[in-house]
Design a protein around this nucleic acid. Sequence first.
DNA 1: CCTGAGATTGAATCGCACT
DNA 2: TAGTGCGATTCAATCTCAG
Lengths: 366, 366
Amino acid sequence: MGKYTKVARGALPLDTILDGDCIDMMNSLPESSIDLIFADPPYNLQLKGDLHRPDNSKVDAVDDAWDQFASFAAYDKFTANWLGAARRLLKPNGAIWVIGSYHNIFRVGAAMQNAGFWMLNDVVWRKSNPMPNFRGKRLTNAHETLIWASKSEESKYTFNYEALKALNEGVQMRSDWVLPICTGHERLKNEAGEKAHPTQKPESLLHRVIVATTRPGDVILDPFFGTGTTGAVAKKLGRDFIGIEREASYRAVAEKRLKSVRKFDRSSLEVTQSKRAEPRVPFGQLVERGMLNPGEELWSLNGRHKAKIRADGTLVGDDVKGSIHQVGAALEGAPSCNGWTYWCFKRDGKNVSIDVLRQQIRAEMN
Amino acid sequence: MGKYTKVARGALPLDTILDGDCIDMMNSLPESSIDLIFADPPYNLQLKGDLHRPDNSKVDAVDDAWDQFASFAAYDKFTANWLGAARRLLKPNGAIWVIGSYHNIFRVGAAMQNAGFWMLNDVVWRKSNPMPNFRGKRLTNAHETLIWASKSEESKYTFNYEALKALNEGVQMRSDWVLPICTGHERLKNEAGEKAHPTQKPESLLHRVIVATTRPGDVILDPFFGTGTTGAVAKKLGRDFIGIEREASYRAVAEKRLKSVRKFDRSSLEVTQSKRAEPRVPFGQLVERGMLNPGEELWSLNGRHKAKIRADGTLVGDDVKGSIHQVGAALEGAPSCNGWTYWCFKRDGKNVSIDVLRQQIRAEMN
DNA sequence: CCTGAGATTGAATCGCACT
DNA sequence: TAGTGCGATTCAATCTCAG
């Protein structure tokens, strides 16, 4: 956890939408208080109007090159500012997701690295039903890019590896995600029947992000809340959210949406756990409990090596003594070895993995 | 075309590999003389210790000196320099492709915009056979990103829309390309039988780039030539190339390779023709997409068993957790079970097979 | 010659708790 | 806080070799 003062959850405006500029509002929240940030920043900023040269002369609209550079500079400044405010809010082990397209994601990604975020993956959202390129002058723009980064290189970020592997039918999740765009009933409309927000993200995308990189009860901040997809999925999945949105019309749609969202029942939010989360069992305990006896021999999985058990739970092999892991590694000439899956004992003439005994002990512990 | 003096092709060192630093060599070539640049610059990977596979074999890391930079600032300076030299060489209607990973592509993309290039698409190379994430700490890094940009916003760039549509079985080519990495016979070896270059790109990738954005007779420059994939495909497709490579060992391999290449060789075409297998749909996607909800119950076809859906797409039954297939098999006491045909959900009082939902998704994907 | 089992390999920013 | 030791972790494709 490190040496930071934990912020009481009561000090946070949980499960509400804050009204105001995202940088001001973020600066008003306590530092090191947020587990995850999801950000979908704008890139069609109309910044050209109020731009001035360093000598304070007005920008000449005819000067395209300068105009473009000034526009990039303004966008970069905006990006550095909100990323800085966001990073301050994150707990030491917190993380951030940012989504964008080729218009802005390269500038945003570079700014993230400059701000000290540590990139974990870039993820491609491959749209299964993108808008075609009508003029046939370019490739169909069929994807958007997300960047997943931790607060710093040292962060012990949350990643529910086994849950994502389960979501993907047993093979590890890749960095390219095929998901449909937001359409149909999910696409929110305003009173006039028009779409309420131009770039509403699908809940499926947020579902995967939140299942992958948060735990139930975590606090998720979305500084560009829009119509509240992040909040809706967070609530369904038993996480808390904080939204920031300065457009009243978007806030209104989001408030209404969030009222009708129900949390899934708690047991269904539990997710496939990794073995790392299970309690540690010392091998010596098997000997103490008489499941294996001093003097008994263990055989390697491949049958090529054997070692004898000693009373203190260490093994003795050819010229090697030590733990089940150390002896296994030494005999195989490997940098490391999981002794639990490497060693077998004989029962009724058959080889049985010692891991079976560990599982017995773990089962008793429940 | 604009008001630039055409350079005689005779002034260019066509179909040769120049020996030297890419920036120096580019500065020695005449301006506005190149139709297309393909660049695969160093990625600036920052690898710490060794990485071993679960079977304890060691991963052969990209630890070459040419990939090492002291800081982001040093990398940015290098990037701005070579991009500036490259842009000077392009004809007014010329274009550039740059490939990279999340380690460098955001910095490169921002530098391209700053240099005045005009982004046309970012393209995702989705690897059909990427290296897995061995420690289970992140998503499988299964793609790389290419940026396609013209020299300026005004450029009338080349895009062979119909040719790409034909390559893609009659539908518009998208911005995500599924292609295998370079292995097997295509992967060049040195005398010792080791791979000649740590990051050789597949010819199928260059084939698509060159067919899409050049015409026969165009001049293609590759400032990071390596073992010459760009040159080989250019030659096959009747384009001229100029390579720049400072490592003598790579040049030697490339020279030999290029000697054996014949124009109009169709072999690189074959890889790009992908068979359209029925796409695999993970059950978890039905949950992510809200077709089924966490906490909802599924019933077995025979009505004897039920199980509850969790947020990661696994099921929980009586004392069993796992995939739809695993839980089905366990409840039936069977060695295996096709969960797709075994499980039903309730809609309007009736039992509906979950396979109906899978078919909906598959229909959307076509 | 074919077949199947086993080995090899790929642009990778790939622990963590406890003392 | 730095050092130590447990023990978790892989997918697709190609190549080799035995039978």
